[in-house]
C-alpha cells in the first residue's frame, strides 16, 4: 500500500471511528445508568439524518440552522421515547425494558418507512464539504477533517459536563446507586431524561455527519451503525465515555484498515465488529476501560 493510500485510509478510519464513537456514547451513558441496551438509539441516529434532510431540503433552512434543529429535535425524540416506552418499566425486570426498546426500534424504522418511504434520499451537502483538498497525491474530503474535529469538540464538551457540572455529578452518582442519589435531592427522572437527551443529540450529530460522508438516507440506515456502536461501547467498557470513544475509534480502524490491507475481506466487513466483540469479551469481559462490577452474593 502506498503512503498516500494509507493516509486516505487513516482519515477514513478516523471518520468512521468518530461516528461510531458519537453513537456509542449514547449507548454507554444509558446502559451505565439503567443497565439496558437502548436498541432504538441507532434509529435516533437515522431520524437525525432525516431531520436535517427535511430541514435543509423541505423547509430550506440554512444548513447550520437545520443542523441545530435536527439535533434539538432528536434530543426531544430521545426524551419522549424514554418517557413513553422506558419510564413505565423502571421497576420492571430489565429484560422488559430491553424488549420495549426493540419494539421502539422497529417502530421508528417502520414509521420512517411509512412517512419517508423506503426510497433512499440524497443528503444535502454544502459545497465546501465535497470539494476535496489536494495535497500532492493525497485527495482528502474536508469532511474527513471535520468529523474527527467536531467529534473531539463534542466529546470534550460532554466530558466537561459529566465531570465538572452538578447534573454530571448526579449522572455519575445515579449510575452506581440510585437510592442514595435520590436521598441527596436528585430527581432521577430528570437526570435520566437529560441523559437520553444528550445521547440522542450526539447520535443526531453523528447522523448528520454520516449523511454528509455517505450521502444516502434511508429508514434502516441506523441498524448496522447502531449495532456496531453498541459493540464499540462494550469493547471500550460499557458505562465509560472514554471507553466508548476508544472502542468506536478502534472499531472504525479495524474495519477500514482490514479491508484496506486485505481487500478480499471486504464482503465480511459487517462481521468484523461482532468477531472483535467476542474476542474482546473472552479476554476482558468488562471491556478495555470497563471497571469490574462486583456481583452481590
Amino acid at each position: 500500500m502506498t503512503f498516500e493510500l494509507f493516509i486516505q485510509n487513516f482519515f477514513n478510519a478516523l471518520t468512521v471511528g468518530s461516528l461510531y464513537a458519537l453513537i456509542a456514547i449514547g449507548y454507554t451513558m444509558v446502559y451505565g445508568i439503567l443497565r439496558f441496551i437502548n436498541f432504538a438509539h441507532g434509529d435516533v441516529f437515522m431520524v437525525g439524518a432525516y431531520f436535517i434532510f427535511f430541514g435543509a431540503a423541505t423547509f430550506a433552512l440554512p444548513w447550520p440552522l437545520a443542523a441545530v434543529a435536527a439535533i434539538v429535535g432528536s434530543a426531544a425524540l430521545g426524551i419522549i421515547v424514554d418517557r413513553i416506552a422506558y419510564r413505565p418499566l423502571r421497576e420492571a425486570p430489565r429484560i422488559s425494558a430491553l424488549i420495549s426498546a426493540i419494539g421502539v426500534s422497529f417502530l421508528l424504522e417502520n414509521l420512517g418507512l411509512v412517512i419517508f418511504t423506503g426510497l433512499p434520499r440524497p443528503a444535502v451537502q454544502p459545497e465546501w464539504m465535497v470539494n476535496p483538498i489536494i495535497l500532492g497525491n493525497i485527495r482528502i474530503l474536508p469532511i474527513s477533517f471535520i468529523v474527527p474535529l467536531v467529534t473531539a469538540v463534542l466529546v470534550m464538551g460532554l466530558l466537561w459536563l459529566v465531570y465538572r457540572t452538578r447534573p454530571g455529578l448526579a449522572m455519575r452518582a445515579i449510575s452506581r446507586d440510585i437510592e442514595t442519589t435520590r436521598l441527596m435531592g436528585v430527581s432521577i427522572d430528570r437526570i435520566i431524561a437529560l441523559t437520553f437527551g444528550l445521547g440522542s443529540a450526539l447520535a443526531a450529530a453523528a447522523g448528520i455527519m454520516w449523511a454528509m460522508r455517505y450521502p444516502q438516507i434511508h429508514p434502516f440506515m441506523g441498524v448496522m451503525p447502531g449495532f456496531k456502536a453498541f459493540i464499540a461501547a462494550v469493547v471500550g467498557g460499557i458505562g465509560s465515555i472514554q471507553g466508548a470513544v476508544l472502542g468506536g475509534v478502534l472499531l472504525g480502524t479495524v474495519e477500514i484498515m482490514a479491508v484496506a490491507f486485505y481487500p478480499e475481506l471486504s464482503g465480511y466487513r459487517d462481521a468484523f465488529a461482532f468477531v472483535l466483540l467476542i474476542v474482546i469479551l473472552l479476554f476482558r469481559p468488562t471491556g478495555l476501560l470497563g471497571e469490574k462490577l462486583d456481583d452481590k452474593i
Partner: peptide
C-alpha cells in the same frame, strides 16, 4: 459512592 472522590461525595450532598 465509591467511584466519586470525597469532595464529590460532599458536593452531591449539596445538590
Amino acid at each position: 459512592l465509591p467511584h466519586l472522590t470525597v469532595s464529590e461525595n460532599l458536593d452531591l450532598g449539596a445538590y
